[in-house]
Amino acid sequence: MKSQAPALSVRDLKVIYQDQAGPVTALSIPVLNVSPGSLLAITGPSGSGKSTFLYAIAGLLRPSQGEVTWGGRILQTMPETIRDHWRRHTIGFVFQDFHLMPELSPLANVLLPASFENLSVSRALKERALMLLEGFGVPYKRASVVDLSRGEQQRVALARALLFDPPVLLADEPTASLDALAGEQVAQTLEDLSKQEGRTVIVVSHDPALINRIGTRFVLERGQARPAASMELVR
């Protein structure tokens, strides 16, 4: 069973990169607190810093300034190997294009993260992978994920993200490649993962249907959060 979702705290976060014209602030969030179990949508126009924000709070991107804290643990001070292990067990990632291995079966795709830390896959993890695929209604006995519909592929990606039962799920445009029906199913799943299972779910999306369904949101424009004042996002 997953551990209690940690609270997210962002302080004075800035991501600055050098352009030909000089330094450009890609992201600037003075304060952001997200309660455990929140369901949060981040929206905004392309290039507004949404994905950058997601990568920063996942510890994939080292900010130029400020700190990201999950449950009191500051990501920037964690050694890389510790951060990898922490991310594996704390954060599940879902992408717009699924990024599944077409040569592998749905089950093998879900079990792939298990190969990051062990030589062989434990029986418990296999059972969990099967339970997730069955729960998401994926015909997992297919030889390859390419035999699945796009909606089913995204659900395989969701199952992969949940293999280690992480308390946090980050989704980058999870419905952008899906038709309306499949998008609706994925949106429902994300909502359930937060509201029924208590996971913190943070979704970056342009999809109005998904954003409206989530309700709690903040908007990024040119890297600035709106409203600019500190935000307390609670469940």
Binding site: R87, R88, F93
Partner: peptide, 16 residues
């Protein structure tokens, strides 16, 4: 490259 980056996002160590 993107696939490796995705694996890293999923928690794969650099050594992997």
């Amino acid at each position: 490259r993107r696939q490796f980056a995705v694996l890293r996002a999923l928690g794969a160590p650099k050594a992997y």
